[in-house]
Design a protein around this nucleic acid. Structure first.
Lengths: 187, 187, 187, 187
DNA sequence: AATGAATGAGGCTTCATTCAT
DNA sequence: GATGAATGAAGCCTCATTCAT
């Protein structure tokens, strides 16, 4: 009673996604993937070239989506205020498409070509915020970086708890306005 | 001779602290510790039972301190507003006493008994915030949890960048008021 | 339908011959054979019991031919001079019939029952040469063995570069007369 | 009853030398080395960084020696006849220093940085021979290459059978004069 | 007859831990 | 105390071979 290839191929991605999500790329073993799928380790290699390929199988399509969505924000936003409603939409869309993949790429990718990605996003956010802020109130740019990181991690955490679209919308809305309010006295 | 032993015992903790801080418990090898101390790997085991014991050697004292400091806040604070000046002091003290240990326990402890620690702190913070907030505005308690986590991660990030007390005070101040301002429209 | 089978059966041998020739038995994978044939690896096993059987499919017929041709030389030659024109013909014929198989058996058979084959041929050549040589000049029989091996490897190398019959004839001729001239002062 | 480190370190090289000599680098497994030494595979890695490092442990010193000796020949020999008494001395010295290492580098090094080395030596020899030969007699340079390879393999074979210096001297002498006599009618 | 799927054995390497001196 | 030496378990990956359809 052999299971169909696509079934397994997808099950591998499914299982791997969960394991990468829980333990990150580095601490997820081929063994644990194989065990969770219910196949031998060597069988894994019929479906994917190596552990990294499984990771990219999980993330690649989503990564393009992420980048495109984020570019929209970066380009459109330069003239308006740094952390406005737009970014709310951007992240909403990204998370709706796939919360776990978002988290994996942003936070569990050490050892893959995506490590360093979260940092880049934070830097972009940080630069945006910096351009909105009154330099007199902020003697140290580091605090802005920290707040940008803070915001990004809020987004990630929301992604981790995402269940339905209404909740997501409201939560990101709350997070964004929370941060905008937070920023006001720095402006 | 007993002095010599203590010297090594402490150097191990010193070195291990730095390595745990940089790479986390899981990615720190006994070999790297021994090498940095300048002793043999096997000698490590005369001082500590195993890698985990070294971790606890580094963190345990600090952990009590943390808990006590935090309890003070928890107990004193029930009647006042959730995230007020007091917590600012609590974390300042904790970070001043030992930023690295704080980060290690909170963020680098995967694989040890402390791996759920950060979560617990966030839960406590979350409960506090929840008691301060207007339930009508916050239909979902989860968002409060997320903001609590957000705050905690801000603290951790500040700890990572801590250099001098003035900066620390100002940064935590900024973070706290940022979050208080953020929370205001939820109250 | 039987025809189809034979077509594949032969294509396997064809492909395997080239791969064994290039990489040797040990470093030729069943996967590479199947891929080059354009069939599945498992299908290979319907035609041949295992990788070794494929090797023998490629070599066995030729091996008989080789042995027979060589025996002719061995038997006819006992009364004349050890390395004369006859052996030139023998190897010419063998290489013309199949240079690759000759090389495979002689030089690429580690891991198969033929792995000692080259050695045997060299021993036969060596014994022949020994019977032609002036024992006073050659105190050590080993040097004769080495020269025999040397000659055999010359033949193998010529086989590796074989393109057309004229070249082959001339090259073996050169090699043989080179070795005969070389031997003259040992006689 | 622990064996001294140096004893094992050397035993590893000893054992590995024999295995590399018999099976080549690629077909020698860490397992087989460990088993022959009588230790665990992981223990191997206390002494050498990896399999390749063991190979270089066996060969490196000798490689320098080889190159130096051979350069002497190449430089000194340009004005005299290609395969003369000098080369006899060069190879004698090289083989006396270490026959097996010579063979390993020249013939068993696939997968290491020395693969391709034998080819280079043969090319140098071939070019030398080519400059000595009457082009009218040799329409195809390939045959010269083959004879150079032939000579090199003669040297290797002598190396394989080397026992004492007198024998070596005589054998190389025989091989060289054999080849010089062989070449004479090509000149 | 054909093949996609599966796997155990084995290859190289690292790591935490233990042992003998 | 101290340490060089040793090792089993585990990690990633490949290969020849077998099985179910």
């Amino acid at each position: 009673m052999q299971i169909l290839k696509d079934e397994i191929r997808n099950k591998i991605l499914d299982v791997a996604e969960n394991l990468f999500y829980q333990n990150g790329f580095r601490d997820t073993t081929t063994r644990s993937i194989a065990k969770a799928v219910g196949i031998s380790v060597s069988n894994l290699y019929l479906y994917y070239e190596n552990k990294e390929a499984i990771f990219y199988g999980v993330t690649d399509g989503f990564f393009e989506y992420f980048i495109n969505g984020f570019k929209t924000f970066v380009n459109h936003d330069d003239k308006s205020n740094g952390m406005n409603i737009d970014i709310s939409h951007v992240f909403q869309r990204i998370i709706k498409v796939d919360q776990k993949k978002f988290i994996i790429i942003a936070d569990k990718s050490q050892g893959t070509k995506y490590e360093g990605f979260k940092e880049q996003i934070i830097n972009i956010l940080s630069n945006h915020m910096l351009s909105q802020v009154n330099k007199e109130f902020v003697e140290d740019e580091l605090i802005i970086y920290i707040l940008a990181k803070n915001f990004m991690e809020g987004i990630i955490e929301i992604a981790k708890n995402y269940k339905d679209d209404r909740w997501l919308e409201k939560s990101i809305g709350t997070l964004v306005s929370y941060h905008i309010n937070g920023m006001k006295h720095l402006m």
